[in-house]
Nucleic acid binder design. Structure first.
Lengths: 247, 247
DNA sequence: TTGAAAGCGCTACCAG
DNA sequence: CTGGTAGCGCTTTCAA
């Protein structure tokens, strides 16, 4: 492995000068700089980021913890994050925390040990599993941002959708169109949907519309496309049928 | 950031001893060791892998270069690799080289700079873009394994499917079933399929069956499901129709 | 069983 | 403009 020292010898200067030259510092004589850079290229020198990271106390890498990758939502997220990270001149350390986030804690530990400059932690149905770790990390220097479903946001930095508000907006929209007989398909399989339905229903209630249970179809009856089709059929055949369906 | 030295002070020993104790070395007095480990846990010490990597000249991480992640094949690959890497106690540094592998070279450079212990390079339709880099890497200490389509394997370590042989096997199978009128759907959009068709056709030829061009449907006519359906319809209506379709 | 010391390759300070 | 030197935090000899 070729080092700064090797180049220094070849160029007849000190390794400090080489370091400066390769960082394109204006403190180096232009001729010397050119010569050094030339030698560096010819010899195929590649800086040792490990040493640099140790010295500068920064790794220019961010850690991404994501449950899995078979759910197509995650690859999309990874793609976006990876592009952004590269564009900013950072690196990505990827850890899969497992479908049930069973490795979440060890992923975080490993990333901290590698002194990544920041952690992006994507949670899933189980919420934030390694809560204590994240807490102690935020007390340290490492910034952590959570994405996904988090039960209690506490003092964490977090990016998530406001599902309840979304549901509420939907309800307002339908109400403004004059709908009063509104069916609901889908029972909460996980938090986000629960919140959406909850927001939807409470807005309905707030204007005095009571939830009609015969119009509320639990999710278990509407998992497959086919079942959804027949569920819709059933709703339409009701006397009177709903004028709108929230699904 | 808490270091070995901090723990050493607290325990009243030297940092060398702490290092040994945390590595569970038998050279350390059992009582001291227990005490040190206790302090380490209480203080929340986490080893600095950057420093360790510099000293040991090994990073326990492998670099994965993959074109993109929207093609569902790649997430599957990532999942598998990530699991294996973790199971072996390694870390994963992920780089997306871009749909057309436009970043392949810089990905490899970055991984080398980080002194990863090995690189897994997945190529796509463009083949191996950063050929020179890989060559010089294999001359260095960093092992590189290529996956995907590679035009010339040269001296690289490579894992790939034998598409031509696969096509040939398919042909033999159909022949053994007595088929002689065999249609082919799909023109090569990329190398693998080209090879498969080629292997298929040469096996056909080798037993004296000439390729019937009216039975060979170019891919451009069969990209969408719908078009494939009508293509099949067309083939079946031929006088005489093929008895088998290779698609 | 322990500590002192060297050194991984780099950056950055301080003199000159 | 340049070199010497210190030191990032760790592992690993070498002596004691």
């Amino acid at each position: 492995m070729i080092t700064l020292e090797d180049i220094a010898k070849q160029a007849g200067v000190s390794h400090s000068t080489v370091s400066r030259a390769l960082a394109n510092s204006p403190l180096v004589n232009a001729t010397t700089k050119a010569k050094i850079q030339q030698i560096a290229i010819e010899s195929g020198y590649q800086v040792n980021q490990v040493a640099r990271n140790l010295k500068t106390r920064s790794t220019k890498t961010i850690g991404l913890v994501i449950p899995e990758v078979s759910n197509p939502y995650y690859p999309k997220l990874i793609q976006f994050i990876a592009d952004e990270v590269r564009a900013s001149g950072f690196n990505l350390q990827l850890h899969l925390s497992g479908v049930h986030q069973e490795f979440e804690a060890s992923c975080i530990a490993s990333l901290y040990e590698h002194r990544v400059d920041g952690i992006l932690l994507v949670t899933a149905e189980n919420g934030l599993v390694a809560k204590e770790q994240v807490k102690s990390l935020s007390n340290s220097q490492t910034p952590v941002v959570l994405m996904g479903w988090i039960e209690e946001a506490e003092h964490f930095d977090i990016v998530t959708g406001n599902d309840a508000h979304g549901g509420s907006l939907l309800a307002s929209h339908l109400l403004s169109l004059g709908h009063r007989q509104i069916a609901i398909i889908g029972k909460p399989p996980h938090r986000g949907i629960f919140d959406r339905i909850h927001g939807f229903q409470s807005t309905l209630k707030s204007v005095g519309i009571s939830i009609q249970h015969n119009l509320t179809i639990p999710n278990s009856l509407a998992e497959e496309d086919q079942e959804i089709a027949s569920t819709v059929q059933f709703l339409i055949n009701l006397p009177p049928p709903p004028t709108a369906i929230f699904a």
